[in-house]
Structures are given as structure tokens and as C-alpha cells.
Computed example of a mutant assay.
Amino acid sequence: MTLFGIDISNNNGPDIDLTEVAREGFSFVFAKVSEGDYFIDATWPAYRDAAHANGLLVAGYHYLRGDCDAAAQAELFVEHLGDAAAMIDFEANSGGITTFWAFVSEVNKRGKRIDLSYIPRWYWQQIGCPDVSQVPGLIQSSYVGGSGFATDLYPGDASPYWNGFGGKAVDLLQFTDAAQVAGHTVDANAFRGSVDDLRRLLGLTPPTTQGVLMALTDAQQADLYQKVQDIWGQLLGPDGHGWPQLGLNAAGQNLTLVDAVAKTGGEILAALPKAAS
């Protein structure tokens, strides 16, 4: 199964009808929230709410700038994101991979988790082909020619555009910037999997009608799920693969918070003077 979605911002105008987008068969919307430490996209709140109202999965993205403070950018982004998955737009003028991870860390400190990373292959090459194996939810972009309906333009699930890089498989493919959707020309993305698969990638609350969660309101369920995701992210790191800043284990993998505490505790005990027998 392949799902299709659109990527929009103020550059596309404020009048894209997401009811029509859903009617045309799209499953998700990625929309711009902020850029640097100075810009808030005025179209975001309405697009976010319309996506929810029409059953579209939604992520809000921040255009990361290498010339702005990571903490200030994270503060701006988290303040305006609201109830949506979180995505980094990491491309021209976004700085190096250390800037990427600095921003991730600052977002995590504010109780949110980055779920998607838009990193075009060309930009990855421009910044020296760093290891991106631990980035959450890689979106790569390679565009086909022409314009038209997204399903007609899509190069296929076996296209080399899907080839990974930097040690990371591609999770979503942005394959055109000229899809005709709801009377507009927009970027279109593809996801190879089911709606539930995409929900899991985005860290969104899966629908449930059974078990103890039935005793909670929808808002309480969403709040509980987000808190569990936050705890999970703090313990296991981005995408569940440890924290780069905590060091590596014997297998060359990033340490989780628990691993790092255990390692530090062992080092402290080993350094203590031995008791006389």
C-alpha cells in the first residue's frame, strides 16, 4: 500500500481546501509552522485544524536555520506547533548535522519529540555526507518531471529515488513540487505502508475502542499517550536508538539514558578505593 500526502506553507497561499484534499484521496498533510527564531507561518493553525477535521494525519515543520540559536528556534516552534507531529525541514542554510542534533535536543527539553526529518540528498551531500542513521523519519526529495495528479507522477515503490543514504533508509519520498491538488500546485509525498504504519512513525495516538483507555476522554488519552512518548524519547533517544552525546557501547551503538547512567555508575564504583580486608 502506498499513501500520498501534500507539503504546504504560506508560499501556497491560505486557501487550500483540505476537505477537497481528503476527497481526492490524500492521507496526510505536512505544513510549515516556523522558520529560524523570527518567522511564524500564519497559515499553520488553520491548516492544522482543517487537517484534523478531515481525518488527515498532520505534521508541522520548522525550517531550521544555521544562523539562529537552536534554543530560540525550538522555543518558537514548540510554542506554535500544537497538537500535531513534529518535523524538521533541514536544507539550504540549515547548517551542519551538529545544528540538527542541537535543535532536536532543545525540542526534547521542551517536552516534544521530533518525528520526521526532511533532508534532501543534495543537502546531505553539500554538508559532507554525515551519518544520518539515527535521524527520525527520513524524508528525501527527488523530483520527477512534469505536472499533474500525484498518482500519475509517482515514480513507483521500486524507484531508485527511494534509495537511502548516510546509513538511513528513506521513510517518505517527496517526488514532485508540481502536483495538481485541490486546484493548487503543491509538493507531494509518498509513504509505503498503511495509515497505522504512518501513525506509528508520526507518534500519533492510534484510534482505540477497547480496554482501560475507554474510561478516559479523547483529550486525556492524547495527553497520556504524549507523556508516554516523551518518557520513551527521553530514555531511548531519537527514534529509539540512543543519544549521540552520551557515547557508544561496545557494539558502536549510541547509549540510552539508562545505559549511560549504568556506565557512569560502574566507572564511579571502579574508581573508589577498595576496602581493606
Rank of each mutant, 00 (worst) to 15 (best):
G96H: 02
W162S: 11
Y154P: 08
A158M: 10
H184Q: 12
E35A: 12
L236Y: 15
R199C: 02
L173R: 06
H184W: 10
R110G: 08
F77C: 08
F77E: 11
Y47W: 10
D152K: 10
G55T: 09
A178G: 01
D37K: 07
M87T: 07
S9M: 03
V78G: 00
I40P: 01
H80Q: 08
L257K: 09
A42I: 11
P244T: 07
A260E: 05
F26H: 15
F165G: 00
A72E: 15
P238K: 13
R23Q: 10
D239E: 15
Y154V: 00
D259Y: 03
R199K: 04
I88Q: 04
N249I: 03
A271T: 11
F103Y: 15
N249K: 07
A219K: 11
Y225R: 12
L216D: 11
G183Q: 08
Y123K: 01
K32V: 00
F77V: 07
K227F: 04
Y63Q: 05
A275N: 08
G237T: 07
L173W: 08
V144I: 02
A271H: 13
D115K: 07
L81A: 05
Q140S: 15
G247S: 06
D83H: 03
G36H: 01
Q229Y: 10
A86N: 01
G5Y: 06
F4A: 03
M1Y: 13
A50Y: 04
F100M: 09
G247M: 11
L64R: 09
F77R: 07
S159H: 11
L257R: 11
M1K: 10
L173S: 05
V186A: 00
G145V: 12
G242P: 13
D196N: 04
D157W: 03
N11L: 05
G240V: 06
I119H: 02
K274W: 00
G128S: 02
D239M: 04
L64T: 14
L204P: 00
A275S: 13
F191L: 07
W101E: 09
Y38V: 12
D171F: 00
L272T: 12
N11D: 14
H62F: 02
F149K: 15
T217G: 14
L272I: 13
G60P: 04
A46C: 00
G82V: 04
E35S: 13
R192Q: 10
F4Y: 13
D177L: 06
W101H: 13
